[in-house]
Design a protein around this nucleic acid. Structure first.
Lengths: 146, 146
DNA sequence: AATGGTGTAAATCTAAAAATTACAGGAGGT
DNA sequence: ACCTCCTGTAATTTTTAGATTTACACCATT
């Protein structure tokens, strides 16, 4: 019911692939070490990104490479790839209001009106941030804290 | 790590109080029946709304009434009252990236750059929706589905 | 064929959210 | 003054979603 930590792991992995993808064989074990996340979970995330076309994974022998330009990858695209209906899960709704109460009967429809707007706004916000921006933040921070 | 179902329960309760607060004694048991949520949880939610000044609760004898005009109550205010730092919990971050990896070492700072923007955008979005809007949605839906 | 990867399913563990139980204390009606 | 109905809140248990672990089939390269 939120933007999952999977999303931040995905970003971490993408930075890793971007920075080291051409000099090292980026495997799920390596990404697991860097992120602190279990290799199976990494493989699931990587697999989602692959299905979306963001990256390529060499089967059998392993190794991951970027498949897009950094400015073609928005945060929205990453979130969507990881969890297709993340937007509808963002806001929790109490599941069992009383159908006998006029408010309980209609509350889900009422909440939908507002929640749809919020969800749309969030998606727009996520579309405004690209992987290019993130890479640039990374380089800046890496420089500042060296 | 998401906008909690508590928020939707709070909205449900506020509609209830707005519609019936002056003709009935709105107790936590009544709200529990209408929302399908445990009365203790209701009391916690109501208590948070009270502390923010959105509603008043008569001690001892019970009964809840609105304390503000509907257009003074934004969704942002409700979320904030229920869970003061909801915005920072909205997006999950993997907690233990490797400090030995240049990316792992900096990933939290990098994510903060983008996540701060998203969080701000979301708050703006929440500020744009008032309880007045929600009440109007409710009346419209109640009319349409009668 | 051996090695070192991926892809996935199934079971287990974990941690956050919610429900339950319990009880002290206030206000109003009788 | 007492009884009843309510709130406020702490402590415990239950539930559920997420993540981890285990296990194994399958694929390329050497």
């Amino acid at each position: 019911m939120h933007i999952s930590t999977k999303c931040s792991v995905a970003i971490h992995c993408l930075i890793f692939v971007f920075e080291y993808g051409d000099t090292q064989k980026v495997t799920s074990d390596l990404l697991s070490l860097s992120t602190g996340i279990n290799p199976v979970t990494i493989r699931k995330i990587i697999s989602s990104l692959k299905k979306d076309g963001i990256i390529s994974v060499k089967f059998g022998t392993g190794g991951t490479t970027l498949n897009c330009l950094p400015n073609e990858i928005t945060l929205y695209r990453i979130c969507k790839a990881i969890e297709p209906n993340f937007a509808s899960k963002l806001i929790g709704v109490h599941p069992l209001p009383s159908p006998l109460c006029p408010i309980g009967k209609n509350i889900h429809k009422v909440l939908d009106c507002s929640y749809q707007k919020i969800s749309n706004d969030l998606c727009e916000s996520l579309k405004n941030i690209t992987f290019e921006n993130i890479i640039s933040d990374y380089h800046k921070i890496q420089h500042d804290y060296k």
